[in-house]
Each structure stands twice: as C-alpha cells, then as structure tokens.
C-alpha cells in the first residue's frame, strides 16, 4: 500500500465553537431600543378657523424659555429644579386658591364625581433655546404629571400607575390629562 492514512482532524468541536460565537454575537448586539418622550402634535390649523375663545389667565401656567436657557414661569424667573413642584401645585390646586386653575366636576369611572382641573400648561421657547433645555422642561412637566398620577393611583388602588389595568389607567388619565400646549415660536429675549 503506497497510500498512507491521513489522520483526520477531529472537527466535531468546530460546530460548538461556531455556536459559541453565534451566541456571543446574539448577546452582545444590543437591539438598541429607542426610547423617548412621546408627544402628540396638534393638527395643522385651517386658515379660516376662528380664533378660539381665550382661556382664563388663572387656568394657564405659562412657561417661557429664552435663548439663554433661562426659565420664566408665570412671569417669575425660576430654576429648573423648582419647576416640577410648581407644576404639580398648579395642576392640583390643593387649597382651591383664586390664582390657580378652576376645577370641573366630572363623572369618572372608579372615582365617581371628581373635580378635574381645567389648567393648561403653555410652553413657549425661543429659536435659540438649547434642545437639552427644552427636553428637560418637557421632562419635568411630564414628571409632574406622572408623579400626580402615581400618587393618586397609590392612594386609590395601592399600586403604581404603570402596574394598573388599562381602564383604571384611563380613569386616572381623565383626572390628570396631560395638557401641554405649545405656542408658535417667537424670539424671546433676542438672539
């Protein structure tokens, strides 16, 4: 026999190595799930629309951001860290004060008749405002709403808002609707 037996390399473990690699890539490739602040834009205004009736001053919480990223809340300068509590107080109006928004009695599922605030948060920014600042303000306002919803949900159902059933969440959303309106941009404070 002139032919020699060539020893075969044991390739049985190659498949294991390949699988190991496959699993490694599966684990390490982070499916970068996008997260963000969700908002609804108002539909475009038809040109022949009448101007809506003005909202009472006490029902509007005015937040202005200028190009230096400074806040003006209800005509008073304010720091960002104070905004959340100010917004909460405005929405809730716990003492039914004159200067804070009116309430409207509404029939709400699970709660019966409940006074719902008529307050609207109006947000206005300058063209030069930094995006981070704008988002921080939006974030604080959203946080104010979320905290109120959580507090209510804790006291009524003993659970966090996120853990509630869909219809209970809707009921709480009816009590604390997220009303953030954005005005058309203006140049506040110059460039």
């Amino acid at each position: 026999m002139g032919k020699r037996d060539v020893q075969e390399v044991n390739a049985g473990s190659m498949a294991d190595i390949a699988f190991l690699l496959l699993i490694f890539f599966l684990v390490t490739t982070t499916m970068d799930t996008d997260s963000g602040l969700s908002r609804m834009l108002p539909p475009p205004v038809p040109e022949d629309q009448e101007t809506p009736p003005p909202i009472k001053d006490r029902n509007v919480f005015e937040v202005l951001i200028n190009s230096q990223n400074r806040l003006l809340v209800e005509n008073e300068p304010m720091e960002l860290r104070e905004l959340r509590d100010a917004a909460k107080e405005f929405i809730q109006n716990p003492l039914d004060e004159e200067g804070l928004p009116e309430k409207e009695e509404k029939q709400i599922e699970y709660f019966g008749i409940y006074p719902v605030s008529k307050g609207v948060i109006s947000l206005q920014n300058d063209r030069g405002t930094q995006y981070q600042m704008y988002l921080s303000v939006q974030n604080e306002l959203a946080a104010a709403y979320n905290e109120l919803r959580n507090e209510l949900s804790q006291s009524k159902f003993g659970k966090k808002f996120d853990e509630l059933e869909e219809d209970k969440q809707d009921a709480i959303r009816d009590i604390y609707p997220q009303k953030i309106s954005e005005a058309e941009p203006k140049n506040i404070g110059g460039k």
Partner: peptide, 14 residues
C-alpha cells in the same frame, strides 16, 4: 413640517 404632513405622533428620543 410634521404637522403639515399629518404625522402627529412624535417622540423626542433621549
């Protein structure tokens, strides 16, 4: 522009 295009659901990615 998004309002005009009727794409009203937005998300500010962060």
């Amino acid at each position: 522009a998004l309002r005009k295009a009727q794409a009203l659901k937005i998300s500010y990615s962060a």
